[in-house]
Amino acid sequence: MKNVKLHLLVLILVVIAEFIGVKNIPIGIGTIVLLPMLYAMIFGLLTTPKFLNIAKEKEMEDAGSLIGLTLMLLMAKYGTNIGPTLPKIIAASPALILQEFGNLGTVLLGIPIAVLLGLKREAIGGAHSIAREPNVALIGDMYGLDSKEGQGVLGVYIVGTVFGTIFIGLLASFLAANTPLHPYALAMASGVGSGSMMTAGVGSLVAMFPEMEEMLTAFGATSNMLSGLDGLYMSLWLALPLSEWLYKRVYKLKYGQLPEAPVTKEGN
Rank of each mutant, 00 (worst) to 15 (best):
172 A>K: 03
106 T>C: 12
23 K>F: 04
198 M>A: 08
107 V>Q: 01
85 T>R: 12
151 Q>P: 00
187 A>E: 02
95 A>D: 09
52 L>T: 01
20 I>P: 04
36 P>I: 03
85 T>H: 13
242 L>M: 13
229 L>C: 12
252 K>D: 09
132 R>K: 12
4 V>W: 08
53 N>H: 12
229 L>S: 11
6 L>K: 01
24 N>V: 10
220 G>I: 11
220 G>C: 07
10 V>G: 06
122 E>G: 04
94 P>K: 01
47 T>P: 10
205 L>F: 05
72 M>F: 11
262 P>Y: 09
208 M>T: 11
99 Q>V: 14
64 G>T: 08
211 E>N: 13
157 Y>K: 05
124 I>E: 01
182 H>P: 09
162 V>M: 13
247 Y>P: 02
166 I>S: 08
118 G>C: 09
127 A>F: 07
22 V>Y: 09
204 S>F: 02
235 S>D: 09
41 M>I: 15
25 I>G: 05
226 L>T: 09
186 L>A: 07
192 V>D: 01
7 H>L: 13
171 L>H: 06
38 L>Y: 01
26 P>M: 06
262 P>M: 06
89 I>R: 02
185 A>P: 02
207 A>D: 03
50 K>M: 03
127 A>T: 14
159 V>R: 03
166 I>V: 15
173 S>L: 08
107 V>N: 01
260 E>R: 11
72 M>E: 08
156 V>H: 01
32 I>T: 05
255 Y>D: 07
220 G>M: 08
88 K>L: 13
111 I>L: 04
265 K>Y: 14
153 V>G: 03
62 D>S: 02
265 K>N: 14
170 L>I: 15
202 V>E: 00
72 M>L: 14
182 H>N: 15
219 F>V: 12
260 E>C: 06
264 T>I: 09
116 L>A: 13
114 A>N: 08
30 G>Y: 06
208 M>H: 02
180 P>A: 12
8 L>K: 05
239 A>M: 02
232 L>W: 09
50 K>R: 12
127 A>H: 04
107 V>W: 00
12 I>S: 06
198 M>S: 04
209 F>I: 05
255 Y>H: 15
251 Y>A: 07
121 R>G: 05
73 L>W: 06
136 V>F: 07
58 K>R: 15
2 K>C: 03
146 D>E: 15
13 L>K: 00
83 G>F: 14
169 G>F: 06
6 L>D: 03
125 G>T: 02
192 V>N: 07
228 G>Y: 10
98 L>R: 05
150 G>V: 06
205 L>T: 07
114 A>T: 06
3 N>C: 07
